[in-house]
Structure formats: C-alpha cells, structure tokens
Computed example of a mutant assay.
Amino acid sequence: MKGHGPLDPATWRPQSRLVASITSLRQLQVFNDRGGIAVDFDIRRSIQPDIEVVGSQSEAFSFWETRSASGFVTKPKFNAELVTIRFVTNGQIVYRHRTGKALGSPTHATLVGFEDLREVQASSGFNAVSATIAVEALVAANDALTGGTQVGLQPLAPIAEMTLPGMQALFCTLRQVQSRIQDVSRHDDLIFPLLKEVMSYQLLSSWPKREQSKPIAKKDISRHRFQTALDYIESHLSGTLMLADIAAAAGISVRSLQDDFRRRLGSTPVQFIIDRRLQNVHQDLSSPTKAMHSIGDVARRWGFVHMSDFGQRYRRLYGYPPSETPRDAARHH
C-alpha cells in the first residue's frame, strides 16, 4: 500500500478472505468501521442497502466480486498508488475524478487510479468483478515482461472495449482468480500465484494505452537459453513457479519467454507447466511404488487442489479420468 503511512486495521488490513452481506444502514456503518478495505460506503446517500461483497486483499493484489440490488456510493479513504480494473457484468458504474468522469458497463471495462478519485457510484442491479493492484507491483511486472527495455509504465486508458480478444482473456483470468478465492485451502494451490502473475502481464499487454507506443523489436533467444528455462521449470515443478523467475533464470524478459514458447512449442509457459504437472500426476498414479497413494494426495502433491478442475484437465490430456488410470496393473507388475 505504498503512498501512505501505517494504517489502523479498521482503515485497511490484509485479508485472505472477506465475505459480507449488508442489508441495513446499521450493517453498512459497521462494515465501514470494521471492513478494513480502502473505501467507505457513503451512508448519507444510501437507501436501504442490499450489497454482497466477496474478496481477498494484500499489499500488492486485491480481488473483489460485488453484487448490489440497491446500488451504492463509495469514496476512497486515502491516497495510495493503486489502480483498480473492473469488469461490470450487470448495471453500470460511474467514477468521478477532479478532471471529469468515466463510465463502466458490461461493454466497457474500466481502469482508475486512487490518486485523483473522488467517488464511485454503482447503479441498482449492479454486479462486477474487480482487481486492485499496487502500482509498484505493476512496475515490477512491466520490468519482467519487457526485460527492462521499457522505462516506466505506459499510461493506460481509463476505458477498454470488451470486444477486444485480449480484454476477454483478461476477464477470464480474473474470473479464475476470483473463483479460487472461495477455497480456503488455496495456500497449496500452485496455479493461484501463476494466475495472478499472468493477469498482470495480460493487463500490461492487452489494455489500451493512452498513447500509441513505438513497437519494440523482438529479440529471438538462443536454444540454450530456452533450454535453461525448461530446466528451471522441471526442477521447480513441485513448488511455486513464477514466469518472472523462469525468465530471470534464462536471462530474458517474460515477453521473450512467452513468444519463444509459442513459436517453439505452440503453447504458453503456463499451459506447459500445467501439462508437465499433469504428466507427473499420471506417472505417479501409474507407478507401483505409489499405488497406495490416493488420487487426491497425488494431485495435491503437484499443486492441484481443485479436484473438478484437475479432473477436467486430466481427461483432456489423457482421454480418460484419473480414476481410470491403470493403477491395478502397476500394483501387480
């Protein structure tokens, strides 16, 4: 939360999971006093509230899903170097700044900073998913993505059309992150940190810029560096893997890493990592030395904590569910 001094926990605090259902002005006031989030609901301008909030927040990333039959008005509690991206799925939202206003709707996603934001007003029948990201985290992601060839962040436009393929991909990733917040056991989820990292790169690559930048010439990377990236992935498959760390180990930018994976393997680095972990699950399930381990234990060892998602991925790769992996033959081999 760079940009302000230490805060009282009632003003802001990290929260791995926050769930609130507000149906009275009294509850709204209590939430303001105890919510610990970066905005206050405007009690004076509220009618009988009907607001549901599910989220998670930390110093670098916060994720929210908001539903409100009544609508609401919020104001930032403090100035901070933060940006919020919001995808409205129903209704609309208006941001009022010192210099004007911006409108978010199901056809147009929004990006706003806290530095000059005065208030936010959501309509009745409002639904949205949002992410708030520290500017410091975005700068670090941009350095990793470009390999330090681009100094500073390019100014991002306040509005983005949802018809753009890149915006739909970003929305899909944010949806996946939001769905995993519901799982209290996500500390074992090795895909969750990757999704947050990828979301930053998607935002930086896909969100429209205020000014058109000159294209940067892409540099091919040597096969040796690509092999270094593969070796790094292989040696860290059972732990947390971040694209920035893989790229740093190979001495390249994240963008070069992504481009080379697409060109050489026809895949993204994230899909490659997931497939290699699925292959290790399959190998363990087929191994006579691990025949007594449950499918759930083996899946969790390789970072799959959502069994439904794991089962679907496994079936797509092997053509049959994990339960039909020939374990009996391995046991008696």
Rank of each mutant, 00 (worst) to 15 (best):
S58M: 06
M242T: 05
T11Y: 07
G166A: 13
S70T: 06
V54M: 07
W302D: 07
L243P: 01
T173K: 06
S253A: 11
Q168L: 09
S200H: 13
L117S: 11
Q227I: 12
C172V: 13
A244G: 08
D275F: 03
R17E: 14
M242R: 10
K290F: 13
L7Y: 06
P155T: 10
A10K: 15
V254M: 00
L203A: 10
A134P: 05
F171T: 11
S206K: 10
R301L: 13
T325F: 04
L285D: 09
R210D: 12
G266D: 05
V298L: 08
Y95S: 00
P155L: 05
P14G: 07
P14D: 10
G148H: 02
P326S: 06
F41Q: 00
E115G: 11
M242A: 07
V184W: 01
T11G: 04
T325K: 04
G91A: 06
T110I: 14
G3W: 02
R98N: 13
I133K: 00
V112E: 15
Y320H: 11
L230N: 08
F72H: 09
H236W: 04
R26T: 14
Q227P: 01
Q178V: 15
S294M: 02
A157S: 14
D8E: 14
V254W: 00
T146D: 02
S68H: 05
M242G: 01
F41V: 02
L237G: 02
K214S: 13
Y95A: 01
V254Y: 00
R86M: 06
P165M: 10
M307C: 01
K219H: 14
A291G: 07
R118N: 15
Q168C: 01
L237D: 07
Y318Q: 00
P6H: 12
A20D: 05
G148C: 05
I274T: 03
D284F: 08
Q258H: 00
F126R: 12
L156W: 00
N90D: 14
Q283F: 06
T74F: 09
A229T: 07
P322M: 04
I47D: 10
T99A: 08
T84K: 03
Q227M: 12
Q212W: 06
I43N: 00
Q178F: 10
V53H: 01
D220Q: 12
V198M: 08
E115D: 15
L156N: 10
G311K: 01
L190M: 10
V30A: 05
M1W: 01
Q121P: 05
T107C: 09
D297P: 01
F31K: 00
I159V: 15
K77P: 02
A38R: 06
G266L: 05
V94G: 04
T149L: 12
L241K: 03
H4S: 11
V120F: 12
A80C: 09
L7A: 10
R225A: 13
M292F: 14
G239A: 11
L111V: 12
I274L: 09
E81Y: 12
P326I: 08
Q27C: 03
W64E: 03
Q176I: 00
T149M: 12
R175I: 03
A109M: 11
D183E: 11
R45K: 09
N32S: 02
T84D: 05
R264A: 01
R331G: 04
P106W: 11
P208T: 13
G36R: 01
D50V: 01
G91W: 06
F31H: 03
V94F: 05
K77V: 04
P322I: 00
P321R: 02
R118V: 15
A137C: 06
I47Q: 12
S124W: 10
P321K: 01
T89S: 15
